[in-house]
């Protein structure tokens, strides 16, 4: 068992795990998303039919989850770049992670109504 490190089981390790998990999820969505968009080459009806799926309340909620994954991956990716290229990056990696989490919470709160408005209007009327 290695001596206690500043990495294992701590912010550095868990942000790395979250970066991997969100990255894989986003890649799989990208594949599906290119497939559904390619239906514009079949017919307007075929495309509008598949987009109707995205307007289903459950799928709409998954879009909010997708936004959550992308925002974390984007913000933490900028933190990884800072750790690699900024001379004090490693020293402040923990503080930067809490900065990432803070900005993520604010942006997720701001995105709540705009992203879910289709479902909210459907469920609770306009």
């Amino acid at each position: 068992m290695p001596a206690g490190t500043l990495y294992r089981g701590r912010e550095g390790m868990w942000s790395w795990v979250a970066h991997r998990v969100t990255g894989v999820l986003i890649f799989f969505f990208l594949f599906v998303h290119v497939l559904d968009t390619s239906l514009v080459r079949v017919s307007p009806e075929a495309y509008d039919d598949v987009v109707a799926t995205y307007k289903n309340p459950v799928v709409n909620l998954m879009e909010y989850g997708l936004v959550a994954a992308i925002l974390f991956h984007a913000l933490n990716g900028l933190r990884v770049i800072a750790v690699d290229f900024w001379s004090k990056g490693a020293r402040y990696q923990r503080q930067m992670l809490w900065g990432v989490v803070g900005v993520w919470v604010v942006l997720m709160a701001g995105a709540f109504y705009p992203v879910l408005q289709h479902t909210l209007r459907e469920l609770f009327g306009s």
Binding site: V40, P44, Y47, D48, Q117, R121
Partner: peptide, 10 residues
């Protein structure tokens, strides 16, 4: 949000 998306929007 997602409401406006359709063939015409693309």
């Amino acid at each position: 949000g997602v409401t406006k998306i359709g063939f015409a929007f693309v």
